[in-house]
Design a protein around this nucleic acid. Structure first.
Lengths: 103, 103
DNA sequence: CGGACATATGCCCTTCGAGCTATATTGCCG
DNA sequence: CGGCAATATAGCTCGAAGGGCATATGTCCG
């Protein structure tokens, strides 16, 4: 998991993931939607691939990329012990709102 | 949320958060547990503070730091749309296991 | 008020990574 | 087989960021 956070730290890579979340896409499709040169996109895809966050399917010259969510589950697991902390805060917030509404 | 991932990308900072998750701690306590010089720890704490991930309480010369989980909730929200993807995978895995057990 | 303790800031060095352009690779089609 | 289309790799530059040491700031205590 160590490096998954580092991989997700880059906004372009998160944007790529968000695009791939909608549907499987070839590289050129991503290039059209991002304001990045094609080699830059390919480099990001390589990073995402090596982190296990995307998978590729070859179709003639095209490479179709799709999300491979495994590492995201590990992030989720890392978050787990913190989750109760903000849920507690939200609970407190809700109680305050209830009090106000109760007036 | 933009930069929260970048802040979490550093392993030292995640370690600090994990230590603070157990309990509120003064800086020196963190320095003892990390193999980092005190100024380095202070610098990380500044980054965490500016990202809203920790809060400080002053007590004489000591500064007690604690986790402030708000930004983590935003990470959790970003993950949300992906969650169903790996849950689907897990479901499929469970079904396979059920099949095997059914034999 | 002087000195010790606890933490923060400034400065420097070095490494890393994101972006680009140019070029290599791979596969299809005429 | 030649050439185009789609993607990947190489090489480069530049700025950001982490680490350390030295020092400043702030707080208590005698």
């Amino acid at each position: 998991m160590a490096s998954t956070f580092a991989v997700l730290a880059d906004p372009s890579r998160r944007e790529i993931l968000d695009l791939l979340r909608e549907r499987e896409r070839p590289v050129g499709d991503l290039v059209d939607r991002l304001t990045l040169a094609q080699p830059t996109v390919s480099k990001h895809l390589k990073v995402l691939r090596e982190a296990g966050l995307v998978e590729v399917r070859t179709d003639a010259q095209k490479r179709w990329y799709r999300v491979s969510p495994g590492p995201l589950a590990e992030i989720d697991a890392w978050l787990a012990p913190y989750r109760r902390m903000w849920e507690k805060s939200l609970d407190a917030l809700e109680r305050r709102l209830d009090e106000i509404e109760g007036d």
